[in-house]
Nucleic acid binder design. Structure first.
Lengths: 201, 201
DNA sequence: TCCGGATCGGGACGCATGGCCCAATCATTG
DNA sequence: CAATGATTGGGCCATGCGTCCCGATCCGGA
């Protein structure tokens, strides 16, 4: 999304602001919702003057789309890092580690997770956002597929989609619970069961 | 939610309005989002005067909660009816039928499905709504569990949760696509694979 | 038939908030 | 030490909201 070019300039004074604003936007989306994404609120959340948001983003739609892309980028990077770490672990290991990652997101980064799904819903309503969502989901699935191949699946693509779908459903389930700290103990067995069954079959 | 007592009175003039308003509210939530749930908009959507919504519902929170309950009630009724129809079908049959049902929802009742997930997200933000969501998910899972037991699962509760999670994730995936009419052909193989693997293992 | 409470309808007030825009200010460069 | 572009502050105007109010209408019981 805003990847190309980053790092070339040392982010003088403005570019850093840009990211500050995007992060504030994600926080607002997570805490209140996309409809609350007003210039004023985002600026306040970022601790910046009102004009800062209108200055850096042409429209609210731009701001939303870029924030969406940033969230996707970061999330995919997180799984990819985990996949690289995992090396050639077994099925159970993979499932448990993956489950612990997503459970940690739901416990610790609750707002970010809520923002992710809120944006997903928004993409369902606005076609121009769907590309971002599909990119996110596909990239995520690609990493999972890689893991499942190492574990020995016979239907890599299909199984990866299933695992990703299950992760999303389980995360959603956890979001409606009051004890996020127990997310891991609920998700680990579920994913172990799922991956185990898929590998076996 | 509004189950008890329904059917006893023939829904005079007011009670019908009440439901009309709730349906309009769900439509608004699906099309625009929960933040757009204002008296004016809901009244307009229902084709009723502004005063109608304030008359029948004390607050927006009440309206939202009752609409949420209604959506849950109807959705669960739909799966239950399907489960009753299915009788003692095999695993593949169960998976395919279930997949076709949820695919049909995403194709035909897109707005309602979006509303369902939008409300779910809202429940993640507001603890007072979480009970409704858990009731919905649990009731749904109970029906699925019944089906899976008939199919011969060894881990009914866990597998039911997994199937429900996968359904949610897959529905969400479909919502971000532009060709909802193909939802069935994407969901049927996935659920068949999932249920097959779970039964086998 | 008549009555009183329930129900319905339209409108007006006051308030909060949003996007937009412009003039003032600041920082860096040449 | 200008000059140019980045940045900020704040005001303007429109929109939309919740709430309240009062009169019209309906309906079942006395």
């Amino acid at each position: 999304m805003s990847l190309p070019g980053r790092g070339s300039e040392p982010a003088p004074r403005g570019a850093a602001r840009r990211e500050l604003i995007l992060e504030a936007a994600l926080r607002v989306v997570g805490e209140v919702g996309p409809d609350a994404l007003t210039h004023r609120r985002v600026a306040a959340e970022a601790g910046l003057p009102l004009a800062a948001t209108t200055y850096w983003f042409a429209s609210k739609a731009d701001l939303l789309a870029e924030a969406y892309g940033l969230a996707a980028e970061r999330d995919v990077a997180r799984v990819r890092a985990l996949a690289d770490e995992l090396g050639d672990a077994g099925a159970a290991q993979i499932a448990a580690t993956l489950a612990r990652l997503v459970a940690a997101e739901v416990s610790g980064g609750r707002t970010a997770v809520i923002a992710a799904y809120a944006l997903w819903i928004e993409a369902a309503r606005r076609p121009e956002l769907r590309g971002i969502e599909r990119g996110w989901t596909d990239a995520y699935a690609a990493v999972v597929e890689e893991l499942l191949v190492r574990a020995g699946t016979r239907r890599p693509a299909l199984d990866a989609r299933l695992v990703v779908a299950a992760i999303d459903g389980l995360q959603l389930e956890q979001l409606a619970r009051d004890d996020p700290e127990r997310a891991a103990e609920r998700m680990v067995p579920a994913l172990e069961r799922l991956v185990g069954a898929l590998i076996a079959g």
